[in-house]
Computed example of a mutant assay.
Amino acid sequence: MKPILYGVLLMVAFAQSISASEADLSPLAVVNKRMDAYNQHNLNAFLATYAETVQVYTYPDKQLAGGKAHLQSIFEPMFKEGNVAVKIHQQIEKDSYVINHETVIHADKKTDYVSIYKVVDGLITEVRFVRDM
């Protein structure tokens, strides 16, 4: 009886660790997962890093996008074109924030950003882009 009970407990613990694994990722790991999906033009993996209610701003508070569906409408055409990439120059992680110095290349145009990502429970909930206009 005890071996069966131990087996069941082990399976339950293993199942819980798999379902909690995304939420257990560090903010830096979540942001890097986003960057990898971006460079692979993998829309589903890219969107999976965001909360449904994500808010995106040009720093400090000019809203660019609200919600995952809005992000999909922006990035889906870019990913289908296949001529977009991001290069990370530096990263800083502090609590639930990740700050990147990054260059985005789209249609042979390079734009430098400082991007501030807020990650809560394994999902990006807010992004603020600092860039020269």
Rank of each mutant, 00 (worst) to 15 (best):
Q16R: 09
V54D: 02
E76Y: 01
S17K: 06
F75M: 06
M35L: 06
I124W: 00
K80V: 10
K2G: 14
N42C: 10
R131L: 10
L43Y: 03
V31W: 00
F75G: 00
D24W: 04
A23R: 14
L5D: 15
V12S: 08
I74G: 04
T103M: 15
E81T: 10
V98E: 05
K109I: 12
L47V: 04
A65L: 06
Q91V: 01
A15N: 12
A20G: 10
V130N: 07
L5I: 15
I74A: 04
V120R: 02
E81Q: 14
L10C: 12
Y57Q: 09
V127P: 00
D121R: 12
V127T: 02
A48K: 10
L25P: 01
Q90G: 09
Y117N: 08
A45K: 08
S96E: 14
T49W: 02
Y113M: 05
H101W: 07
V130R: 03
N100A: 08
E126H: 08
Y57F: 12
Y97Q: 15
V98C: 06
P27V: 06
V119H: 00
R34G: 08
F79T: 00
L25N: 12
I105E: 14
L5R: 15
M78P: 00
F79K: 00
Y117A: 06
E93T: 14
K68S: 11
Y6H: 10
P27S: 04
R34L: 13
R34I: 04
K109C: 06
L47W: 03
Q16M: 14
A15I: 11
N44V: 10
M35W: 05
Y57L: 10
N44Y: 13
K110E: 09
A85S: 10
K109E: 05
N39G: 07
S19Y: 12
E22N: 12
A37W: 02
V84Y: 02
E93F: 02
H70D: 13
V114E: 11
A37N: 10
H41A: 12
V114W: 04
K118C: 09
P3E: 06
K62W: 06
A20T: 03
L5K: 14
N100K: 01
P60R: 15
S26R: 09
G67C: 07
I18R: 08
S115Q: 05
V104H: 05
N44L: 10
V120G: 09
L10P: 12
A65R: 00
Y117P: 00
K94D: 14
L123M: 05
K110N: 05
S73N: 09
Q16C: 15
D108K: 05
P60K: 15
T53R: 11
A107S: 15
Q40Y: 03
A107G: 15
T111P: 06
A15S: 15
D24P: 02
H101F: 06
I124L: 01
K2N: 15
V84Q: 03
K94W: 08
E76M: 03
